[in-house]
Structure formats: C-alpha cells, structure tokens
Design a protein around this nucleic acid. Structure first.
Lengths: 196, 196
DNA sequence: GCGATTTTTGAATGATCAATCAAAAACCTA
DNA sequence: TAGGTTTTTGATTGATCATTCAAAAATCGC
C-alpha cells in the first residue's frame, strides 16, 4: 500500500489558474508556483507533470468553473434577451472592478500563447465556439419568445458572433487604464442595441 | 573623434517590434533579439539600454508607424462613414491573413504586460485614447455630412468607444483558430450596422 | 604615431530557470 | 520487523537568462 497524497490537486489548480491569470504564463516561474501552491518542486512535477501540463490543467479547470458562468447563464431556460443583457451587465461590473482588470484567463492566453502553443490554441478555439453556441442558443430563445425581431438562422449566428466579439473586446478594454469603465459601458450599451 | 555607429537603430526597432509581436515580451530572450537584430550583446545594451527599454522603444516605434494607419485613415478629410467602413474591412482582411493571426502588438501587450508594467500600461491607455479620438473625429464628420443620423456629442463618443471595443475584440478573434474569418466578418458587419 | 573618445566584440558573470533524483517518510500486508 | 509501493523533501543539476566588462577596433586632430 503506497503513501497517500498529502493534498488534493483540484484546489491547487484553482490557485495555479489564479497565478497564471495575474502574471501570464511565461512570466510565472515554477518557483512562483511552488510558493503559491505551497508544494515542493518534486511534488509539483510528480502530480502535474511539468509547467506546461500544469498550465493546461489549470486552463481546463478555469474553463470548467469560472469560464462556464457565462455560457451557463446564456443556456438557462427563460428569456434569451434577458440572459444576454445580464451577461453584458455582469461583464461591465466584473471587468470594471479592481480584480477584473486582469480580464479573462482564456482571452489572455489567446493573446500571449496561442500563436506558438498548439494545445493552447485548441483550448482557445473551443472556448470561442462555446461562447458562440451559448449566445446562439439565447438568441434563438429570444426570437422564439418574440423578444427580438425575426431573423434567419444565419443572421442569428452572425449576431452571436458579433456579441462574442464585443465581449472579447471588453476583455481587452479591461486593461486600458482609468477610462475602462466608460469604454466597457459604451461597448455593452451599443452592442445590446443590435438586438433591436 | 569617436568611432561611429555601425548600424542605424531605427530599422532595428522595426525588427524588434516584429519579434516581440510574434513571440510576446517574456518569451523573447535577449539572445533571440541578438540573433534577429544581428547585433552583439554589448551593442544592443549600449544602444538601447536594456531589454525593457528596447521593448518600450519598439512599442513607440510601432505606435508611430503601423499603429498610426487606422487613426490616420480615420482623420483623413472626406466621408467619415466611408473611412470607418474601410477601417473595418481592412481589419477583417489583415486579421484573417496568416500574418494577421498575431493580432496587434499593442493589444497583445495590454493582455500580457499591462497589469504589472506601469510604462506599458500608459502606452496602452494612450493608444486606446488615440483610437477613440480618431473614431470620434470620423463620426463627427459623418454626422456633419449627413451620413449618419443626428446624435449628441455624448452619443458620438459612446459610439466611438463601442466601435473601438469591436476592433479590439476582432484582434482577440484573430487568435481564435480556423473560424476566425467568419467571426471577424460577423463582428464587422453588425458593428457597422450601428451607424444606421 | 599618439592620444582621446566611442563603439564593437563576445567571453564571462551571477542569477534564475525548469526539472531531476536519492533518501526519508508514509502507508499496508505478511 | 521486513518488504513493497508511492509520495515528500529539497538540494542539486545543467541550461538559460539578462547583463557586464576588458580588450580590440574605428574615427579624428595634432
């Protein structure tokens, strides 16, 4: 019977995701991770494999937790239009807060790593597809409920892509300095106007 | 009389900007820069100071060259609406190309560095302000020319912020994998619809 | 040719990096 | 207690990092 693990790996993935989110992948050293996770180097490598594998696991963990909030909200039965409006309002509030200035881990990863890390690229593409599908679902419900004017399925998909583009832009603007809130609110307001 | 410089620094800033654009700041080593600029380490430090200073100079160079194209186009006398339309079309084309997948250096910098590099944060904020002002100028011309319906100055500024938010989102979507073009086109199409 | 000045060269420096590894520790069974 | 297995520990390893520095080189004026 072998020695048991002294810790549970899942909560450590949350901590690692938080650190990568704050600092970026390249700027986060294994020693930073060792400190943050309160692990010894051998344990970290034994459990997660290596730095990149830990990053991948942390991204998956983030996508399954924080990253699900918006798609889940959009998929909830009920008013599709209300769901979209709530997602935008929530994004303005979160991205305006001090903590929100770091944006979104997956969007940050797209910009930092996705051009030379094939696995990260796949995760980013999956995430964008998930967002687009959730917005499409909400828009279809809105159309069925008469909350937006009739549109073809193609038009619905185009609108979903646009709304996702706006949300991604808001994540960039979260990093834009003291005027971020005004920019976020303006983007959200006009974007929601496209529902009319 | 001292020994003259063997090279001209300005074109080297273009090369450095190109490398940082492709790889990101942290993932680009001084040895990478030495190779790319065809300089020896001492010359690089003697001329530019250190890695960070070179990055700052490269950002300024980018902002003064490539980064000016969109604001210059928007400020050109003539149809404000046409200028905005051209900027969006140009962005779709550039960001869809193989080379365009790396997005925009300043947007990438915002996501990678701006949260822990005060100087980079300032440059990013300046850039966002420049974009917003140029869009505002084009929108004001469009309103004066009767190309868009009348709006208050506040509404014009809101619309400019929204359009910039969309452009920033497109730069994120440039990194989103094989479906990027469709996403870029959808975002641009609906965003331009907001002019009506 | 010498002196003064600045630039180039690229090896060297000390720090930091990601990762390894051997010994000790923790568990169970016989 | 011994044996088997896995985990923990943390010092060590070899590579890479950003930067420095002394000697050689390039220029001009005397």
């Amino acid at each position: 019977m072998a020695r048991p693990l002294k810790f549970s790996p899942e909560p450590l993935l949350d901590k690692a995701a938080d650190l990568f989110w704050r600092q970026g992948y390249e700027a986060t050293s294994v020693q930073d991770l060792v400190n943050e996770l309160d692990l010894h180097p051998g344990s970290l490598y034994n459990t997660f494999g290596d730095k990149h594998a830990l990053f991948m696991a942390a991204l998956d963990r983030y996508a399954a937790t924080t990253g699900c909030r918006i798609p889940d909200l959009l998929h909830q039965p009920g008013s599709g239009r209300r769901a979209i409006e709530r997602v935008f309002q929530m994004s303005v509030d979160l991205l305006s807060a001090k903590e929100g200035r770091r944006g979104c881990l997956i969007t940050n990863t797209a910009m930092e790593c996705a051009d030379h890390d094939a696995e990260a690229t796949r995760k980013v593409a999956t995430y964008q597809q998930t967002m687009e599908d959730a917005l499409t679902d909400a828009l279809n419900r809105a159309r069925t409920n008469g909350e937006i004017r009739p549109r073809t399925p193609e038009e619905i998909r185009t609108l979903a892509r646009f709304l996702n583009g706006c949300l991604q832009g808001m994540r960039v603007l979260a990093h834009s300095g003291p005027d971020a809130r005004a920019r976020l609110e303006a983007t959200a307001q006009v974007a929601l106007g496209a529902l009319d």
